[in-house]
Design a protein around this nucleic acid. Structure first.
Length: 243
DNA sequence: TCTATTTGACCAGG
DNA sequence: CCTGGTCAAATAGA
């Protein structure tokens, strides 16, 4: 049974009192429910899904995401999906992703990435060959609203590569996921903070665990793509958000 | 059978 | 008080 990832869960993750457990009974609630949940890099990306080709709809950035929740956002016509790295407990990958379809343009998906990946992308050839003709990517599941006709055509990725984080998705060139680079800003931070104790497995991937610093004011690693950049995609409001 | 997804409820922050 | 975010249990699919 030790093979089950759950074992790790019980060890790493403490049972969060939720139903009928008093949070006061904990003896080490010191870190339980950390007060500061922020202090993590956050950047947004807008992915436009061409109605003619769902290729862009492939929000898969090369990592394995597991949906852990969906909530309706006030003012948003579509619910927001919450994803977290599949290897959260395996590699302490606290990377999360939020996908929300814009209210005005259902073809545009606003993906908000939170945290950095401490695991390697699933670029494994055994998992997804670069020549994958077409994978049934569930897009954003909730496509019942607007079924995008699957079609194999040219991908007109209008995605702005203005982002300083080389966040260009393999739109036209599939298979070059390896050059997927995350904001190197992390490197400039305190990468010396590693937890070799638990993930002592085999440094298959250096954990650039930024984790939470003592700071929570605003000097955190919160960086978002230039608001102006968003304006280009969102003529609705230059405030950075629609509506 | 296992894994991923779904849905509801709970909690914390503003 | 309301909204957003997360977890946990149940269900579906492979």
């Amino acid at each position: 049974m030790a093979t089950q990832p759950e074992s790790s869960v019980s060890i790493e993750e403490s049972p969060r009192s939720q139903d009928f457990n008093q949070p006061f009974d904990n003896q080490q609630e010191d870190k339980v429910v950390s007060k500061k949940r922020k202090a993590m890099p956050t950047w947004q990306n807008q992915i436009r899904i061409s109605t003619e080709n769902g290729l862009e709809g492939n929000t898969d950035d090369g990592y394995s995401w597991r949906k852990y929740g969906q909530k309706d956002i006030l003012g948003s016509k579509f619910p927001r999906s919450y994803y977290r790295c599949t290897y959260r407990y395996i590699h302490h990958c606290m990377a999360r992703k939020q996908v929300q379809r814009t209210n005005e343009d259902p073809t545009v998906f606003e993906i908000t990435y939170k945290g950095q990946h401490s695991c390697n992308p699933t670029a494994s050839p055994s998992a997804a060959p670069p020549h994958s003709p077409e994978k049934h990517d569930p897009i954003e599941q909730t496509n019942h609203q607007l079924a995008l006709p699957p079609k194999s055509g040219v991908s007109t990725s209008d995605f702005d590569a203005t982002v300083p984080y080389s966040f260009s998705f393999p739109s036209t060139s599939f298979g070059s996921i390896e050059n997927y680079q995350q904001p190197h800003l992390l490197q400039g931070y305190s990468p010396s903070f590693i937890s070799p104790t638990t993930s002592g497995s085999n440094n298959l991937t250096e954990c650039s665990s930024y984790f939470q610093h003592h700071d929570d004011s605003n000097s955190s690693l919160t960086f978002i793509t230039d608001p102006q950049d968003l304006s280009q995609n969102f003529p609705f409001n230059n405030s950075g958000y629609f509506m």
